[in-house]
Computed example of a mutant assay.
Amino acid sequence: MSESAELDKAFLALADPVRRAIIARLSRGPATVTELAEPHAMTKQAVSKHIHVLEQAGLVTRSRDAQRRPVHLDAAALERLTAWIDRYRLVAEGRNRRLDAVLSEMKEKER
């Protein structure tokens, strides 16, 4: 799958507030579907569907621990998203710094 397709899946998955809340919870450590469903007014089946979307996007994984199937955050996947965002953030910050410098020069010339 191309980098663009992976980004599309990840950002689409993160567009939903419930899925973002799940990611936030998993940032503190693995959790079961039951634990992830607790703060939401929805069924475990609905939360499982959200987890499935996050799995398909490569943002979370599941493991098996006897009867438990904890969900884990894939930190490397979030790191890839952050790296992609940072590329464009750094470009924008560079432009803003150049604009600030030009505006400062203009103010100095006015004095």
Score class of each variant (00 low, 15 high):
E3G: 08
E3C: 01
E3I: 10
S4R: 14
L7M: 11
A13T: 10
A13F: 07
A13G: 08
A15H: 14
D16W: 04
P17E: 13
V18D: 02
R19V: 02
A21W: 00
I22E: 06
A24P: 01
L26P: 03
G29W: 05
G29Q: 03
P30G: 03
T32H: 04
V33N: 14
E35I: 02
A37C: 01
P39C: 11
P39S: 12
H40C: 08
A41M: 13
T43N: 10
Q45G: 08
Q45Y: 06
Q45S: 14
K49M: 06
I51A: 00
H52A: 12
V53S: 00
Q56L: 04
G58H: 04
L59F: 08
R62V: 06
S63T: 15
R64A: 13
Q67T: 13
H72D: 02
L73Q: 05
D74A: 11
A77C: 06
A77P: 04
L81E: 08
A83D: 14
W84D: 10
R87T: 12
Y88T: 03
L90Y: 04
G94H: 06
R95N: 13
N96A: 15
R98P: 05
R98G: 07
L99R: 03
L99E: 05
A101T: 03
V102K: 09
V102T: 10
E105N: 07
M106R: 12
E110D: 11
